[in-house]
Nucleic acid binder design. Structure first.
Lengths: 205, 205
DNA sequence: TGTACATCAGTGAACGCGCGTTCACTGATGTAC
DNA sequence: TGTACATCAGTGAACGCGCGTTCACTGATGTAC
């Protein structure tokens, strides 16, 4: 129990966590403000002490997700040093790891229909997350001869798209069937082939 | 007006098309059976003459999507001949073209939460669509020396994931910002680099 | 330490709404003679 | 061609439900003296 505030203690965060659990379980469609309140042991009306409404609650869940996401990516990037290549691969793995470890956050961020421009803070932290991947791509691209070097933004977009596609299609059991390969392997091999195509990995490695 | 049936003429298809328009406009969340009925000029209760309920209506929209999708992929594959490489690239382009030309269908298929196993017909036609991409990958992989040849299923999964990621993240204006590149270019270059990584395109081309 | 007071997080009742679904019906269409 | 009948697609009213949101309130907590 430890430190409790007025009545509930920390309703705001409890609501966010209830929302995350519900979103993970039932998707952004199935999430309702009333049920989140109930799960936090509180009347629906109490939610309005902390959020303007349903939308703002989801946005806060997404914001916290971007925060964790950005931290994770930055950590992976730094830890992947010294080689730009290893750093880059580490960020790719971190992307998937985040999606699997924090599915509620991931769904809030990418599938809830929440706009990144909903609030300034959301936009800022979302940008921070994306910037890490872009920076990793930039450092990587310097090893490529300038005349055949693709824009770093394009490389990061490719990797982002591949990662997101793997998460959506194979990361969960969603579209019915079992996935043909573990998502981690799929992403790892996909990025590997892609980097070979950029000339950053030896053809015979 | 032409051929009209009993009262409405072809309510069933009109409902599917109303559903597709609504899903495209408001997402699968915003779609309601009642509004689809209204848009088709009919009472909500009339829907039940043709579908068991809301779920079945969405499933039919998705089914028609898979049908079109499979046809389009097959056509692109055949038309891309004679080279397996050109065929493969053509199916990739067809994927994106489908997503952009039939957004309502695409969303019904991949974002509505409809399970492919909802009905046997759905499962069959979905499988047909996926099989085309896999076949294209198979033909392609034969040009790779066997000892370094990745499984065809993996190659098609990579391309599917990349395509889906491009559609979701850059194909629409959804996550807020403007996309840094046209999705078509993004997918084309991404697939190009990937195929180079497989050793199927000369490094200096 | 004890009392009086201010704060404000959470209550509980109420609201209007649109949803998906059901049901007995009706009346336009197609068919048999 | 005309009449009687069967069919069945669509009607309209009703249902129970849970939603998001509002409002005046209450009562536990923290603070001043």
């Amino acid at each position: 129990m430890s430190k409790r505030g007025y009545h509930h203690g920390n309703l705001r965060q409890a609501l966010v966590e209830a929302a995350l659990a519900l979103i993970e379980e039932k998707g952004p469609t199935g999430f309702t403000l009333s049920e989140a309140a109930k799960q936090a042991g509180v009347t629906p009306a109490a939610v309005y002490r902390h959020f303007k409404g349903r939308e703002e609650l989801i946005a806060e869940a997404a914001r916290q997700g971007y925060e964790i996401f950005a931290d994770l990516m930055e950590f992976a990037y730094a830890k992947g040093q010294p080689s730009p290549l290893s750093s880059f691969e580490a960020t790719g793995r971190a992307y998937l790891a985040f999606a699997r470890k924090y599915p509620g956050h991931y769904i809030s961020m990418f599938e809830s229909g929440v706009s990144v421009n909903q609030s300034p803070e959301l936009a800022i932290v979302a940008n921070r997350a994306m910037a890490v991947l872009e920076e990793a791509a930039m450092a990587l691209a310097e090893n490529i001869p300038p005349e055949k070097r693709p824009p770093a933004k394009m490389v990061s977009a490719h990797i982002w798209a591949l990662s997101h596609g793997v998460v959506e299609l194979f990361g969960r059991g969603s579209p019915g069937q079992k996935s043909p390969f573990p998502p981690e392997d799929l992403l790892e091999t996909g990025i590997g082939i892609y980097l070979r195509g950029l000339g950053l990995i030896k053809p015979d490695s």
